[in-house]
Design a binder for these strands. Structure first.
Lengths: 195, 195
DNA sequence: ATTTTCTTTAATCAAATGATTAAAAACTCC
DNA sequence: GGAGTTTTTAATCATTTGATTAAAGAAAAT
């Protein structure tokens, strides 16, 4: 068996699918586009993944993994709040540099089918509870949820709004990268001033 | 001519189209779905709007209007920064209460076709310049762009991430509304502490 | 009332699209 | 090197989908 080759073809399809799903969503991505992008025959897509839908589910599952595994570990790490905030921001920005349109992909898919998503994912309150409780107790604030959402908003939103922001701010890609690098340092400071 | 009836049918189609485009995007929305949602024959869609694409462009144009006209006026109003920040947040939250998934719709569409969008819209640096310069000059800060993005992020992101946030925070719709109402007051204060 | 114009419908078309099939090609193992 | 297995391809199918057409129905104008 050409183990090496098998993995390569399967991976080629997944890479192509990810790229197109991220850009155009499920309905906007045609199996023929994926095949062309991957440089393979359309039938291979069904041979390896049975259907476009199954392929999408795999991409989605791995995307959720990328989006949440890192932060989950940070949430559960035994360190102080300042360190955690810094880690969360660093973690997200690092991931988003590699996959800038992962959030829009995930959030669009959830919006299109929130109930279907709920059934498949294992996300719940438990996910943020450790961090939520730490903020609430150590800082004696009732705004722990607001603060958590602020961290996510300040970090993730720029990537979601990037194409529009480039127009509004008249930046190019390189300037945007610098702009984000600046934010990476500023966001933890901003959050601290809110507390 | 049944002027009244005409407007009604056209409006029914537009309302149905907006609802479905917002939820499922352009590719995910089928003309038959729009027709069914509007309670009309498919041919009427083409009779009134020539094509699905033209209908989409109209919805997009009106959406951009809703998304930017209000803020543009605030930007250009001769008032102090604190007042402006408050107005921007109030303005957005009011609009987003009515059309919660407008931002995701617009941002997804831009991502799918950034160049096509650039050609049609008249947005540019000029849009934020008045507010940008005011912040820069009155507050002597180099972070004016970061601050503007923060206002947008803190205000808009919760609506984009709403379906996911409801799961993560274990809120229901009513609690989310209260949560946003709280933010409406908190965001201007948070921004002030950043300056 | 009758003609004319505007609106709506059912039926249909052509292209796009997800999926399958049968056969060829490549590879593995003996 | 040949049987058996896995991978790949070209061709095709059935359905979906955006759009059109021709005719019916409703309203307006004369």
């Amino acid at each position: 068996m050409s183990e090496q080759q098998d993995i390569k073809t399967e991976e080629k399809i997944k890479n192509a699918a990810l790229k197109l799903f991220y850009k155009n969503g499920f309905a906007g991505t045609k199996t023929r586009d994926i095949a062309e992008e991957a440089g393979i025959n359309i039938a291979l897509l069904n041979y390896y993944f049975r259907s476009k839908e199954k392929l999408f589910e795999i991409i989605m599952e791995e995307s959720l993994q990328k989006m949440f595994t890192g932060v989950k570990n940070v949430f559960n790490k035994p360190s102080n709040i300042d360190e955690k905030i810094k880690s969360i921001v660093d973690n997200y920005i690092e991931n988003l540099r590699i996959n800038p349109n992962l959030p829009l992909f995930v959030l669009s898919a959830i919006q299109a089918d929130a109930t279907g998503f709920m059934k498949k994912t294992h996300l719940s309150k438990d996910f943020i509870s450790p961090f939520f409780n730490q903020i609430k107790e150590e800082l004696q604030t009732e705004n722990a949820l607001q603060i958590i959402l602020n961290i996510l908003a300040l970090t993730i939103f720029p990537f979601i709004a990037k194409p529009l922001w480039l127009i509004l701010s008249d930046m190019n890609d390189e300037q945007f990268t610098d702009f984000i690098e600046e934010r990476r340092k500023l966001i933890p400071a901003w959050i601290k001033t809110m507390l």
